[in-house]
Design a protein around this nucleic acid. Structure first.
Lengths: 244, 244
DNA sequence: CAAGTTATTCTCATAATGAGATTCTCTTAG
DNA sequence: CTAAGAGAATCTCATTATGAGAATAACTTG
């Protein structure tokens, strides 16, 4: 069959059905660690395994809408969540039931309440990103892509402010970078850098109520500025291995 | 109907069908301009309008595979093409026939032969990216996202080398940046910069056969190096408007 | 052969970065 | 209550990166 014959007789409804799902990589910082929302599957296939929250899109529902709904169903959260598309995965056989194409979304939020498992899940919990169980399907890969995206976006966008509260100190912001990147940053240089990037943060005039838990002066409070890109960017310490 | 009832009775096959397509934003540089491959639709809907090459995925076919196939059907090209996923678009109503989710891919290649229209297209041609016709469906948006992605990736990856031949001169490389970004760069600084980034290019020891068309000495020839990321990056001249 | 072009290399001022140190304000242990 | 330690905010200084302009020399074409 050549191309023209193929296309002439082509009607997508004749094809084996393709299902479209959204899966969400939801990230937060809790107890000093970067954490990912995972649900324990209650139904086969892969019942008992941890997976990303997600599910089939509904008729008339846009993709970001579906992602927000799936996330809300597991956490009860909607406000203050930054959500963006990550990538799509559609290898044949990635789901044993049928052809499933998954559009993944990446969500960032400040410390959130404990999740309550949705109706098709046995459990739901925030897992440390550095101590993950084996995940169902190809969710391990999706999650790894999400983490790398988050790490990269900290460099050139004000994304870090999505992980902290309405107002925050420079140290809290540095804590976000340190936990997401898994490195220790020079406090003085970080401070200088953040204040020198136009629109990254703006002072509130307030300070914290008291000093740090283990001492130190009260810190000035800031809120997110209006920049959408950081210029100049806050680059990760050179990663020779990743360059080649 | 609450969530559990919904999911209990849920079978994706019961849903109105969702079709999955791939659309390709193929970029090249021709006649000193950044160009995009477009096909003129031969069939309704939107017959006669220009659109991105693309089509339905086939059973058993992976997504990047489908994108490469669609591109090959319009250009006859496979080798030397860098292809990567761009984003997915699935707003209800984006295609009047049925629910269609499109996974878009971005392809880069050096100057390619003229395309021959595939069987479902009336025509196919390389269009200047700065003089585009109105496109079918939401392809204008997809294309705009692809262009921005390409512009951004020139900054921190060796992508520019995908637009030139096996060996190239620093000036040719500068030409890529200038046409994709639509700016004029300082030749001396660009030269210094490219050679200072480890792994971006490596000299071949050869030079061009003759000087430039309008004069000048023979230029040294380079080939792409082994870097996957440019460090430090080659940043676009500051775009104040895009930062806020 | 003269004039014009372009590849390549330099110079120099300014900006950004990394490492370390200082100052001063808090908290906590004793 | 006080001494010790922690942390916020600044500063210094050497190094590296960037932007602008210029110089040199090898080629082209008229």
């Amino acid at each position: 069959m050549d191309e023209s014959e193929f296309l002439a007789g082509y009607d997508p409804r004749d094809f084996p059905p393709v299902a479209v799902t959204v899966d969400v990589v939801a990230l937060t910082i809790r107890e000093n660690a970067l954490r990912v929302l995972l649900v324990e599957r209650g139904e086969p296939p892969q019942a008992g395994r941890w997976a990303l929250p997600g599910g089939f899109i509904r008729p008339g529902e846009d993709l970001p809408e579906a992602a927000a709904r799936e996330l809300a169903e597991e956490t009860g959260l909607t406000p203050r969540v930054h959500i963006e598309q990550l990538a799509s995965y559609g290898a044949p056989g990635r789901d044993p039931r049928m052809r499933v194409v998954s559009i993944s979304y990446l969500a960032f939020a400040p410390d959130l309440p404990d999740p309550r498992p949705g109706s098709d899940a046995a459990d739901a919990a925030w897992h440390r990103a550095d101590r993950l169980p084996a995940l169902a399907f190809d969710h391990g890969r999706i999650l790894a892509d999400g983490l790398e995206r988050a790490r990269a976006k900290l460099e050139y966008t004000p994304l870090a402010t999505a992980f902290v509260g309405e107002t925050f100190t420079i140290s809290e912001l540095r804590g976000v970078y340190e936990t997401v990147w898994g490195v220790v940053l020079h406090a003085g240089n970080f401070h200088r850098k953040v204040l020198s990037v136009p629109g990254f943060v703006e002072g509130t005039g307030e300070t914290t109520e008291s000093g740090g838990a283990r001492g130190g002066p009260r810190a000035k409070l800031y809120r997110a500025g209006d920049a959408r890109l950081l210029h100049p960017a806050l680059l990760r310490p050179a990663r020779e291995e990743e360059i080649r």
